[in-house]
Design a protein around this nucleic acid. Structure first.
Length: 346
DNA sequence: AACGCGGGGTC
DNA sequence: GACCCAGCGTT
């Protein structure tokens, strides 16, 4: 295969067809590693359409590393509400502190430095370096994995051939304009070389594609049959004081939904029970509501039963007491938004 | 190498 | 419903 021709086709297609995305600037001199980094963190395992509104609001709120480093980590966590993988928010905040304190506020782009930043792994390091500086790092995301698997007709499930995919991707990496090139491949993967029924007629690299020649585009990449998710059951407390306020608390720093706000909830997460939790669990006169909440995490389903406590009047419980009307403005994870919705419907 | 880690878009 | 997404960190 003529690899120069391959990347040339990709880049020509990009200049005419690239998606208009808020983290892409028209003028290369405006490239800001901070903005590229924020976009790449948000886009980890998250679709472009979901990220766009969050990205715009994030940059309005924290337009540079300095502003972000002076924020409170809970602000960033609450902002992340609904986006998922909340450790990303913690790492984003932590990294802004590191860059502010150890790198004089200048975003480090050297490979050995960027890869050490919390939340930046092999993919993200390569992507930021390529997009910000046109470094020739080989970048492989979920889109590019699929494109490469099809171009080279790799028949095994992607999980099993990560190394082979990267080696093949490396052969195609151009000497110039690698930033545009990888973004182009991602656009091609997202718009044309889709998981189901790719529109090969529109593909600028169709002539290089062995899978297309073999007429097997819906067989590559090979899918893995997933097991059903187990169901866990737990309880969640809707605790109201005599001022009609509801009790919320922050979760443990590690594990599921780390540091996020929740209505006290137990028996389903591996988070340890601390003294404050024991106090909550010892509250008497709870009333079981008929309503339940079903929520799906990445690796299990959760069925929560809601218990209600009214006119709770002890003040030895640590947490936030919040008026019912103000709960909507907080940054709750989706699971807890569902609990709120259920109680409001009763 | 395998697993824990969310949530929403899309058909 | 099922599938998938600009992956990372830990074990």
């Amino acid at each position: 295969m003529n690899y120069t021709d391959f990347s040339k086709n990709v880049l020509n297609w990009y200049s005419a067809n690239k998606r208009d995305l808020p983290w892409r600037c028209k003028n290369n001199s405006q490239k800001d590693p901070y903005k590229i980094w924020v976009s790449e963190i948000m886009l980890q395992q998250t679709t472009v359409a979901t990220v766009i509104p969050y990205y715009k609001k994030f940059l309005e709120k924290w337009p540079n590393i300095e502003k972000l480093s002076k924020s409170n980590v809970n602000e960033v966590l609450d902002f992340w509400s609904g986006l998922g993988y909340y450790r990303r928010a913690k790492n984003l905040h932590l990294t802004s502190k590191i860059i502010s304190n150890q790198f004089n506020g200048i975003f480090p782009l050297e490979k050995n430095e960027i890869i050490k930043l919390p939340g930046v792994g092999e993919y993200t390091a390569a992507a930021i370096r390529a997009i910000a500086k046109d470094e020739k790092d080989t970048v492989v995301d979920a889109n590019i994995e699929r494109v490469i698997a099809r171009i080279f007709y790799l028949k095994k499930p992607i999980k099993q051939i990560k190394k082979e995919i990267k080696q093949n991707a490396e052969k195609l990496t151009p000497k110039l304009s690698n930033g545009d090139y990888i973004q182009a491949l991602m656009d091609i993967g997202s718009l044309i070389c889709t998981p189901k029924d790719p529109t090969c007629d529109n593909c600028p690299i169709e002539k290089f594609c062995i899978t297309k020649k073999k007429n097997a585009v819906n067989e590559i990449p090979k899918k893995i049959i997933k097991n059903d998710k187990p169901v866990r059951e737990g309880i969640v407390y809707w605790i109201k004081n005599k001022n009609n306020q509801i009790l919320l608390k922050r979760r443990e720093e590690n594990g599921l939904l780390p540091g996020m706000l929740e209505f006290p909830s137990y028996n389903w997460s591996k988070n340890k029970i601390n003294e404050n939790d024991k106090k909550i669990l010892s509250i008497k006169n709870t009333k079981k509501l008929e309503k339940k909440v079903m929520h799906e995490f990445s690796h299990f389903k959760l069925l929560l039963t809601i218990y209600e406590i009214n006119k709770f009047n002890k003040n030895s419980i640590n947490g936030m007491w919040v008026g019912i009307d103000e709960i909507n403005q907080l940054g709750l994870p989706t699971l807890m938004k569902k609990v709120y919705q259920q109680v409001m419907e009763i």
